[in-house]
Simulated assay, not measured.
Amino acid sequence: MDTLLTPITHALASVLAGAHSLATDLGLASGSASAWLLAIAAVVVTVRSLMLPLVVRGVRDSHARAKARPQLLALQERYKGTRDPERLQRMRAEQKKIHAEHGVSTWGIAPMLLQLPLLLALYRVISDVTAGQGVGALDAGLVASATSASVLGLHLSSRLGSAFAASPSAGLVLVAVVVLSALLSFATQRWFALPMMDPTGQPELMVQVQQWMPLVGAVGVLVSAAFVPAGLIVYWCLSNLWTFVQQGLVWRFAPTPGSPAALRRTGTTARA
């Protein structure tokens, strides 16, 4: 896996090194926390921008599936309980026809899978740098510069326990970033993701699980933050901020048909 990710990690390391160089050209002190924070933000923007076509594809596919859902539910009801091979084959043929009619992709999970190499490579770069290891264009000098940069005593390589041990102010800064990241995760799921899910035809247990997902995601961020360096937490926070804005735009302008978000938008449009 490391060998497969090497070209991607080196490309991302070049972006990080180039963004730091640009930050210093803009007047920020070389090796300063602000320069490295800007560099991390540049990497997040680069990666998430590259993933936008996959996001658009995913939104289109969710719309197609939502439009096909009523016909698929009716089909399942019509063939409910059948075990006859011939009837089951007929049902699959009709299902395939409905998918083709609405443009439902048979590779619905592909966009998510294609994102994984980029996300894993980005995680590896940030993790290696905050651990003091060089990656591609990030040589020993740049890595030392990144790990020595600090805000109120908080370094990119600091962990929650060591941050409080070094300075209460550093620990509080890190806690604030962790809490902000968790809140962004919760708000994204609660305000934008849940309202775009149509519970029609779903088992009650599945609906209940979906209701718990915002809290589970936020708790996951809080727990994980105790074991990773500050640089990764900063990356999480910036990435969660991007996701919050991105999902908010989808919720506002392209909600899933039949979902509460779509009904809300239709009602708003009707009153306008």
Rank of each mutant, 00 (worst) to 15 (best):
residue 1 M to G: 15
residue 8 I to W: 05
residue 11 A to I: 15
residue 11 A to K: 12
residue 13 A to P: 04
residue 15 V to G: 04
residue 16 L to Q: 02
residue 18 G to I: 09
residue 24 T to V: 14
residue 24 T to N: 10
residue 25 D to H: 12
residue 26 L to W: 07
residue 28 L to T: 08
residue 31 G to S: 12
residue 33 A to Y: 11
residue 34 S to L: 12
residue 35 A to H: 03
residue 37 L to D: 00
residue 38 L to N: 03
residue 38 L to V: 13
residue 40 I to M: 05
residue 45 V to Q: 11
residue 47 V to K: 07
residue 53 P to F: 12
residue 56 V to M: 11
residue 58 G to M: 14
residue 59 V to R: 13
residue 60 R to Y: 06
residue 63 H to M: 07
residue 65 R to A: 13
residue 67 K to E: 15
residue 67 K to W: 07
residue 68 A to M: 10
residue 69 R to M: 12
residue 74 A to S: 08
residue 75 L to W: 08
residue 75 L to C: 08
residue 76 Q to P: 09
residue 77 E to A: 15
residue 79 Y to I: 11
residue 85 P to Y: 15
residue 89 Q to F: 02
residue 92 R to E: 09
residue 92 R to L: 07
residue 95 Q to G: 13
residue 103 G to C: 04
residue 103 G to Y: 02
residue 104 V to K: 09
residue 105 S to W: 00
residue 106 T to P: 14
residue 108 G to L: 13
residue 109 I to C: 10
residue 112 M to K: 03
residue 117 P to C: 14
residue 117 P to G: 11
residue 122 L to M: 14
residue 123 Y to P: 02
residue 124 R to F: 06
residue 124 R to V: 10
residue 127 S to D: 12
residue 138 L to K: 00
residue 141 G to W: 04
residue 142 L to M: 12
residue 142 L to V: 03
residue 143 V to I: 06
residue 144 A to L: 09
residue 145 S to W: 02
residue 146 A to K: 01
residue 148 S to T: 14
residue 151 V to S: 04
residue 152 L to M: 10
residue 152 L to F: 10
residue 154 L to F: 09
residue 157 S to Q: 09
residue 165 A to H: 13
residue 165 A to V: 10
residue 166 A to E: 11
residue 167 S to C: 04
residue 169 S to C: 00
residue 170 A to V: 10
residue 174 L to G: 02
residue 177 V to H: 02
residue 178 V to A: 01
residue 179 V to H: 01
residue 180 L to P: 00
residue 181 S to Y: 00
residue 181 S to V: 03
residue 185 S to L: 02
residue 187 A to S: 08
residue 188 T to P: 08
residue 192 F to V: 12
residue 193 A to D: 11
residue 193 A to S: 15
residue 194 L to V: 15
residue 196 M to T: 15
residue 198 D to S: 13
residue 200 T to C: 04
residue 200 T to M: 03
residue 200 T to V: 08
residue 212 W to V: 10
residue 212 W to R: 08
residue 213 M to T: 14
residue 214 P to K: 02
residue 220 G to L: 02
residue 220 G to R: 01
residue 221 V to G: 00
residue 223 V to N: 00
residue 227 F to W: 13
residue 228 V to Q: 08
residue 228 V to H: 06
residue 229 P to F: 05
residue 230 A to S: 06
residue 230 A to R: 01
residue 232 L to C: 03
residue 234 V to F: 06
residue 238 L to P: 00
residue 241 L to A: 11
residue 246 Q to T: 11
residue 246 Q to H: 14
residue 247 Q to P: 07
residue 247 Q to Y: 15
residue 248 G to F: 09
residue 248 G to K: 07
residue 255 P to K: 09
residue 258 G to N: 06
residue 261 A to V: 05
residue 263 L to E: 14
residue 264 R to H: 03
residue 266 T to R: 06
residue 270 A to G: 07
residue 271 R to H: 09
residue 272 A to P: 01
residue 272 A to S: 10
